[in-house]
Design a protein around this nucleic acid. Structure first.
Lengths: 155, 155
DNA sequence: CGGAGACTGAGCACATTGTCCACCAAAACA
DNA sequence: TGTTTTGGTGGACAATGTGCTCAGTCTCCG
């Protein structure tokens, strides 16, 4: 789906002020209320908007350590049962299958470096996981953001 | 900050049904409306809730390719000016400084593999970036999620 | 030209919000 | 033990909003 300038403005406005409601959006953007609703509904229907948070910061919950863990798995095992098991570990926030030297890449959080060892041990215990390699995120100078992309896509 | 069971329920409910408002939350969870508001405000004040989306799926916008790009930067340059430049590239969604063989790890999206080359070229052009290594995410069996972590933290 | 899609402004019935208040109970502190 | 702090409760007030529908208008496309 392609989005236009109004879509982009709408997303940016809601990100900046989540509580303002559709009527105030329509006032701010000089369009009809129904238009705001139709645009939001369409973006949701097309999968552009997948939800409305709440956006959670794991660090504020005490999970101060973030790591990216590359997994080597047994090829016979395949990645689906491995992923299903990884999904059961709350500290595993996302899992991708990847090209390159490893088979899967996980984003993982933990309360401390020692706790990270515990989480990695949980991962290693998953059937099919042969080996892991971890890098710890020391700082996040650019936190995850999609607004610049939305702006660029929306003109 | 530690969260309790009610906090966790509240986050889960709002994630499932973002449009229901605080009054309906209070009905669903059998607490006073003021309690819902106080809990949300406290989690926001403590940085646990950082926002309310909208959550955007880059793939639905046409950015079908996701890659994780490890950067090697010149040590003299330091990472701050590099990160500032990376932040100007809309397709760069997040940037971490990391332990291990590389200095920074970026999550990047692009419209195609060819487009990814264009984006990587933008990154390589950033002053201080010496070399990049990329892995492409082929599939995302576990998309980013924090709810299991919230549930585990909230009891 | 006709049809489809998008936008507009309005209306309807119903509901909600932000804020404040007084009260109560439990926990923390001296 | 007595006092203070914190969190929750239910209620009120003034203002505003929501989800949905509708008829009309405009633009684009076959």
């Amino acid at each position: 789906m392609t989005i236009d300038h109004l879509d982009a403005q709408l997303v940016a406005l809601l990100a900046a002020e989540p509580r303002i409601g559709v009527l105030e959006c329509s006032r701010r953007l000089n369009v009809a209320r129904g238009t705001v609703q139709a645009r939001l509904d369409r973006m949701a229907a097309k999968g552009v908007i997948t939800g409305y948070g709440p956006d959670i910061d794991p660090a504020a919950l005490g999970f101060d350590v973030t790591a990216f863990v590359t997994l080597h798995i047994r090829q016979v095992a395949g990645h689906v049962p491995v992923a299903d098991q990884l999904a059961l570990i709350p500290e595993v926030l996302e899992v991708h299958t990847i090209t390159g030297g490893g088979d899967m890449l996980c984003r993982v959080v933990a309360r401390s470096n020692a706790d990270l060892q515990r989480v990695i041990d949980l991962i290693v215990d998953v059937q099919g996981v042969v080996r892991t390699e971890s890098v710890i995120a020391l700082d996040t100078p650019v936190p995850y953001r999609t607004l610049p992309l939305v702006r660029a896509a929306g003109g």
